[in-house]
Every structure is written in C-alpha cells, then in structure tokens.
C-alpha cells in the first residue's frame, strides 16, 4: 500500500533543501504578507506540502514551493476578505514612542508600501526583484502570461514610487 506522503521519515534531500532554501522562502513569504508570524506559518505549511509531494516536487523543489506559497498566500487574502479583516500593526493606535521608531520606520517603509500594493502587483515585485526570477519564471509561478507580468511590474513600480513619496524614476530594465 503506498501513500502520497511517501515515507514517514523526511527525505534527506528534502531536509537539505529546507536547510538551504528556507531562509529565502521565509523572506519571500514575509515580503508577500508583511507579517513575520504569518510568514512563518506559511513557510511551514508550504514545506509540509512539498514534503508530502516530494517525489513530484524533488525535480524542482524551489519552483514547486514558490507555487504552493503563492497559492497559500492568495487563499489567506481571500479568507481575510471574507472573514475578519486583520489590522496591520501600523493601523493600531500608537501606544508609545520608541527610541528606535524612526529607524525602524525607515527600514520598514518598503515593506509597508508593498503591503499597500494589490496582491498581483506585490507578487511580481517580490518574485522579480527579491527572488530574481525572470519574467518567464515569474509568469510560471504566478500562473499568468509574461505580458501580464510586465504590465503588473510597471504598475507596481509606479505605485511603489508614489507610496514611497519619491519623485525619482525607478528604472525598469526591459
């Protein structure tokens, strides 16, 4: 009798993959959702699904994991929009001024701006400029055409520029 999960034990190659790529996947998840706790949950669920389907995923585990991560992230946004909308930390009342607040604010400005982008625009920014995927690979991860990726990229960069209050142009390599 065989199970989709394969062995009860994790495959050593999967463990090696986790050691090597989990930091990058976690940071990708963080940039997609803007919250470290949720990013850790997403990473764990993603890796469990990869482990469960390791025989199918082992050929290109990172691409497989990215696709799972995107699907889980989209599920999460859908659930949030149906249920209780989460309040981001920045929306909560400011309780106390911290010495490091300004420094944190500056460092986090881009992450906060990313959160304000529509989901698909945020995804193209993260996969193209953080994960360094090509337009074609980004399209495969997001399940859309290359033209859509280019279009979202231009709109996202333009919106990011507005959000960051910059009047400088963000150059996009064609």
């Amino acid at each position: 009798m065989s199970f989709p999960g394969g062995s009860r034990e994790l495959d050593p190659a999967f463990e090696e993959f986790v050691r090597a790529r989990s930091p990058a996947l976690l940071r990708t998840a963080f940039l997609l959702v803007g919250d470290r706790g949720h990013a850790e949950d997403l990473l764990q669920t993603t890796l469990l699904r990869v482990a469960w389907r390791w025989s199918a995923a082992s050929a290109q585990p990172e691409a497989y994991a990215r696709r799972v991560l995107v699907n889980l992230t989209r599920d999460r946004w859908r659930n949030l929009s149906r249920r209780v909308r989460e309040r981001h930390q920045a929306d909560l009342p400011q309780l106390a001024a911290l010495d490091s607040a300004d420094r944190i604010a500056e460092r986090d400005a881009l992450v906060q701006a990313l959160r304000l982008l529509p989901t698909r625009q945020r995804e193209v920014i993260v996969f193209r400029f953080y994960a360094d995927l090509t337009v074609a690979d980004t399209a495969r991860v997001l399940g859309c055409t290359e033209g859509t990726v280019k279009s979202y990229t231009n709109r996202a960069l333009s919106r990011l520029r507005e959000l960051l209050g910059e009047h400088r142009e963000i150059e996009v390599q064609k």
Binding site: P23, L26, R27, F30, L31, R36, A39, R107, D108, L110, V111, I125, V126, F129, Y130, D132, L157, L160, I170
Partner: peptide, 12 residues
C-alpha cells in the same frame, strides 16, 4: 530596489 528588498528582510 533589489538591494532594499534584501536589506529589509535579511534579519529574518
């Protein structure tokens, strides 16, 4: 932009 994305998440 790449550098900033990496810098903002490097500690995670």
């Amino acid at each position: 932009l790449r550098d900033r994305l990496h810098a903002d998440s490097v500690g995670i």
